[in-house]
Design a binder for these strands. Structure first.
Lengths: 259, 259
DNA sequence: GAGTGGATTTCGCAT
DNA sequence: ATGCGAAGTCCACTC
């Protein structure tokens, strides 16, 4: 019998009855559980699904999230986001693991008739997570280094609300013309262009004079180039990586002025 | 020593050296692996991230997908979709597990200094997965039972391409007027309305006469109701569940005519 | 609590 | 390969 204080307790080929006890205990102590065995799954809620028997990995986390993973695929085949209530019950030598969510009302039930492994985990994890090169990073980079757009560009505001939504950056060019900047961290598609067009139209109708629209992205989808030209919008190539590099320079401190 | 044919082989608290051997062997045999231990993670690719040390669950699947899960959250903190090449190497008593992707060029490296559990899996999973109440189900339900839209409605085509994209359903009402139907499986927001508006505009400009636009969804976002009216579009309440029920009736066979 | 938009979105389908 | 849109998307943030 492994010590109760080990971060990982493992039970191999437990009987269904034994598994139920271990899992019930794990749930009541808010442990993270890993179950591997032969199972089938029903889901009812926003949609509904039925997964027929097979061997899978089930993870029940401390925060009430549930994942059912097959041996292929990035995504779980069934799941439930955090906040579920877990239940484990025995019915005719079948173990039922339920994850119940209130809003929206949803249930995932996993039925096991054979468990190869039940593991009870107590993981200590306080490590920080830092992500770079997001769209937000691109915005910050442009705000600290407006010449990335073009010489003489001066940001006025960012995340400014106009009727259709929020403009990423709004500013003035070297000629004093108004400029709306729309940022995308990956290849810009039709949607990005139409979004920018709506912002430009909206600003134009308010100020009643010329407004430039500049789409900033690492690249632009092929068919969309024409749409961009038709709408008299402009494109400026800029990659999230380049932006991340700029932000990693000492001058990031300039940013603080904006916050 | 567990049999090589067991679907689940478990190694508890292996040394780093031993773990490397097990993992290398698992990779070369295309097994699914579960690693639990103290690790830190670097990611470089479309974006970049750094995860500082902590105890986590790592899954390496047969198809080359990688998941790094913390003890909370539905989503993995780091990951790589299927198609990666895995490597396991030892550097100064630290185990490096690498997942390398070619297109886009990306790398996730997980560094372990302590492993509590290494499990090598050989899961048999041929169970079918069936999902109900998707947007596609709603489309099918309307095609088999057009009166769901309104009495006298007759679908003409579906997934028909017009300039802005694909119309979900296109048909004719009891008065002979053209109708564009846009389907959403959940509360319709601004985007859905604008999408429908573009389709209606596009068809109108082609046929040069009145075209109705009907948004089909379980409900409509509050502020969006006004937008809908402004654009002279209509709304028809219909839930994916109701559609799924209709499809579960024996008459589904009518559907085959469409396929 | 609802609405809005981003995401290392992933995934599937069509061109 | 690329483009496009859905997803049981999830998630963070605002109102």
């Amino acid at each position: 019998m492994p010590s109760e204080k080990s971060p990982v307790n493992v039970f191999q080929n437990p009987s269904i009855v034994r598994a139920k006890e271990i899992i019930k205990n794990g749930i009541s102590h808010r442990k993270t559980l890993i179950l591997i065995g032969n199972c089938w799954v029903d889901y009812h809620g926003r949609a509904g699904s039925k997964l027929f028997p097979g061997e899978r990995i089930v993870i029940m986390k401390e925060d009430g999230s549930l994942l059912v993973h097959r041996s292929t695929g990035y995504e779980p085949v069934n799941w439930q986001p955090p906040g579920c209530i877990f239940e484990a019950n025995l019915k005719e030598n079948v173990l039922e693991v339920k994850a119940i969510r209130r809003k929206p009302a949803e249930t995932v039930v996993v039925y096991f008739d054979k468990l190869y492994l039940v593991s009870v985990l107590d993981l200590e994890d306080f490590g920080e997570f830092a992500l770079h090169a997001s769209e937000e990073d691109m915005q910050k980079a442009i705000l600290t280094e407006p010449s990335l757009i073009e010489p003489g560009f001066k940001p006025v505001t960012y995340e400014k609300k106009v009727e259709p939504g929020f403009m990423d950056i709004y500013g003035i060019d070297s000629q004093g013309r108004f400029v709306v900047v729309e940022i995308k961290r990956k290849t810009a598609g039709k949607e990005a262009v139409l979004q920018l067009a709506r912002y430009v139209e909206s600003v134009k109708s308010m100020v009643n004079r010329e407004v430039r629209g500049i789409l900033v992205a690492p690249s632009i989808a092929k068919g969309v180039q024409r749409l961009l030209e038709t709408l008299k919008l402009e494109f400026k190539a800029l990659s999230p990586k380049k932006c991340a590099e700029i932000l990693s320079k000492p001058e990031i401190k300039k940013l603080e002025e904006f916050l």
